[in-house]
Simulated scan of single mutants.
Amino acid sequence: MPLKPPEIEELADRPRKGRGAVSNKSGRYEAETRHKVDDGWLSEAGEEDAPPLRTTLHVDTARTIISRNDSPDILFDRSINPYRGCEHGCIYCFARPTHAWLGLSPGLDFETQLFYKPDAPALLEAELRRPGYSPAMMAMGTNTDPYQPVERELQLTRRVIEVLSRFNHPLGIVTKSALITRDIDLLAPMAAKGLAGACISLSMLDRDLARSLEPRAATPPKRLETIRRLADAGIPVSVLTSPMIPGLNDHMLEQVLEAAAAAGATAAGWTMLRLPLEIAGLFQEWLEAHAPDRAKRVMSLVRQTRGGKLYKSGFGERMRGEGPVAEMIRARFNHAVRRLGLNRSRWALDIGQFAVPPRPGDQMSLF
């Protein structure tokens, strides 16, 4: 008679210092599911003594670098993402589910298994030189932040900006990182020609809340300083109060807009919290771990902005939500924007200056 295997107790997931996700469950395309169990070593050493999670870099062998979309909800049709995954660890990040395509978890894997595209600058130059290429604003930071901590060493984003600058190609950047100020020497001359603008994502001023929601992003004061430095350099700056999470950070909306305007932002935008696919479960885990006293209320309010569901993906409603709660946030945003004089004139980037620069050895044109 075969021996019955011993009962193994599954361990509960716990927050990890400096990381946003609580768990690392398998992605939706995986056949297996992960279970965390104690093999005996953990109970001897103590879970708190487990080594910290390290970030691992992988090469992404992309063949193209410009991603295109036809979504009516966003203001650009092309973007560049030098990195996949994001060490900032924002628990609400809408890009998390993309890691499932790689056979990885949208949870902790998204924050610790990063992919970078070493050929990004060369691929971009090749695509811009193609006959018939038609310029429009190039967006960066639309999926994961282009200023990952490792960007300090790899400088992929900087080299992409250098290519766009040589082609006089318009560029808009969205980031939570203060590292963008390193590239003021490139962005300021582009901005002077109407070719560059920046958007700083900032949805709260509470440092403690930001530390748990966005554990490795720049602090709110640092982001305000970043807005000020960019604006002082003549670079048009907008603030993106995203996401608004009812019952958690929406009460800070006016404070954020006031602080950003005082720092030099001239435009503003907002989006409602989005919980597609695996993000819903990850966000609920985060609430239970970090804000258990508010978890049920926050999830109830989120459902009130999505017609009773956790998420609705339809164009025209996924960014803003619906119902009284969403309408109240929208009205407050609009009132604050008018009061502060934001969005009076949207900065428009100039596509008419685009020109393919000659390569060494190219014959010069007579015309």
Results as ranks from 00 to 15, higher is better:
A259T: 09
P215E: 01
G46W: 05
A178V: 14
S79Y: 15
D208Q: 12
V174Q: 08
D13H: 15
N334V: 04
P170T: 06
A62W: 11
R344H: 12
E9Q: 12
A295E: 06
F115D: 13
L277Q: 12
L57D: 08
V150E: 15
E47P: 07
S203V: 10
T181A: 06
I200C: 07
L57S: 09
L104V: 03
K25I: 09
S177Y: 14
D293C: 05
A280H: 07
G18V: 04
R129P: 02
R130N: 06
S212I: 06
L128R: 08
S177A: 08
F315A: 14
E48N: 15
K117M: 11
S365H: 06
A50P: 06
R78G: 06
G103F: 02
D109N: 02
R274C: 11
T112D: 09
P324W: 01
R346S: 09
E151H: 12
A62S: 11
V160S: 03
L310K: 11
S71A: 12
I173L: 07
L179W: 09
G314P: 08
P358M: 05
N81L: 00
K36W: 08
I180N: 00
R332M: 13
L53M: 10
K309R: 15
N168E: 08
N343T: 01
A192L: 07
K222A: 12
S165K: 13
T241C: 08
L154Y: 00
T55R: 15
L104G: 02
A261M: 06
P292N: 14
S242W: 02
R16W: 02
A348T: 15
G107R: 01
I200E: 05
E214T: 07
S105A: 03
L179P: 13
G307A: 05
A178W: 13
M328T: 10
R96Y: 07
S203A: 09
A192G: 03
K296R: 13
N343D: 02
K117E: 11
P6K: 15
H290N: 14
D77E: 13
R159M: 12
A188T: 07
G132H: 04
H335M: 07
T98D: 11
A331Q: 10
R339A: 00
A268G: 05
L273Y: 06
C86V: 06
